[in-house]
Amino acid sequence: MESNSERIALECRDLHKHLGEGEMRVHVLRGVNLKLYRGEVSAIVGPSGCGKSTLLYLLGLLDRQDSGQILVRGEEVPADQDEAHTRVRGEHIGFVFQFHFLLPEFSAAENVMLPMRKLGRLSEKEMEARACSLLSDVGLGEKTHRLPSQLSGGEQQRVAIARSLANLPSVLLADEPTGNLDVKNSLMVFDSLTQLAKEKGQAVLIVTHNPDLADKCDRILRMQDGQFID
């Protein structure tokens, strides 16, 4: 039986972050503490500008906190070491953004293979097989060789989900993953994201404005003025 601490995929302690310069400087995050557990889907909700996305980017090591600690699988990631950030991102963290950010010159399968290429743990054939398998999981098994421009908005976002899972990350961070989709596609993308993550035992954190989607998550974290209010 796994202990509670072993289930923690990502943790942050007393995170502070300021944005802007001089008089425009704003204290966006004010001592945020959070633990994300494997196999659990959490949603952060709150008004625009409350610091949701900023927190997500800090947890995803895409930005640096002013103070506080971030621990991935129990190990602290130093805030000032870009190389460590990059390595941990590549191995343990997957991202899904509001926009799919697929590289237009590459096919769906090649886009999914990009994180695997960087990690370099699989052969070319293994990468191809894995990309096709992930695309099948999100319902795009027939469209692996299509370019992003030949896919619908919902399909593009599902390719982005497959890409985020490419290296079997411990944590999946999603910033408004359905914000750009209609209701039908939103549900399809959300279901793909949460179902796959649960199957593979990943911690999922979703930033969303959509209360219906948030209600479907295991945990809802409400944020206001740079702090969790519950």
Binding site: D82, T86, R87, G90, F95, L114
Partner: peptide
């Protein structure tokens, strides 16, 4: 810039 940012988010280094 967006493509560069997404590659960085996947673990591609500054040198890459």
């Amino acid at each position: 810039t967006r493509e560069i940012a997404i590659l960085r988010s996947m673990g591609y280094t500054r040198n890459d």
